[in-house]
């Protein structure tokens, strides 16, 4: 691959039923690029969880996926409330999601742990009242 390939998506925070659409699209694009299925699965699950989180907690945001020769980078940016305690949020089972979200099948406190589990690196840059940027990479070489 001579140059990086970049996919950009705006994630609509208003409509839960459409949440995850960007991840489905990324999965298809990565398949077209001939990326190995195991890497595609890890990237799309991590991005999907992040996308859902942006809709649940931050009223949407943006997602960028950058494909280079040796890694796939996912950058999720929102202008939501920020994460008050990142180490707490990283614990499996800890959730601040509303009951209405749980009734939709999310808010089990597995989002951030799953994102970390399926990626090789994950950095969370968050500021209360300003928003959160999560950068994840999956090595593909």
């Amino acid at each position: 691959m001579a140059e990086n390939i970049v996919f950009h998506f705006d994630v609509d925070g208003e409509d839960f039923s459409s949440a995850g659409g960007a991840s489905v699209t990324v999965k298809k694009k990565l398949r077209q690029l001939g990326i190995a299925p195991e890497y595609i699965r890890r990237v799309s699950i991590a991005m999907y969880e992040g996308e859902i989180n942006m809709v649940i907690h931050a009223n949407g945001g943006s997602a960028d996926v950058i494909v280079s020769d040796d890694e796939i980078k996912i950058v999720l940016t929102d202008t939501g409330p920020g994460i008050p305690d990142v180490s707490l949020a990283m614990q499996e089972g800890y959730s601040t999601a509303r009951d209405s979200i749980r009734s939709l099948g999310f808010g089990a406190g597995m989002g951030l742990p799953n994102m970390k589990k399926y990626t090789d690196t994950m950095e969370i840059d968050t500021e209360l009242g300003r928003g959160t940027t999560i950068t994840m990479t999956v090595k593909i070489a």
Binding site: S17, L104, F106, G109
Partner: peptide, 25 residues
């Protein structure tokens, strides 16, 4: 019925049984 629990376990060629009905399933 918890999709994040489903997403925590990678298995090949699986079937999902659920009572939850929405597009996220």
């Amino acid at each position: 019925d918890m999709m994040s629990d489903v997403l925590a376990f990678v298995k090949d060629q699986g079937v999902l049984l659920t009572g939850l009905v929405n597009e996220q399933v």
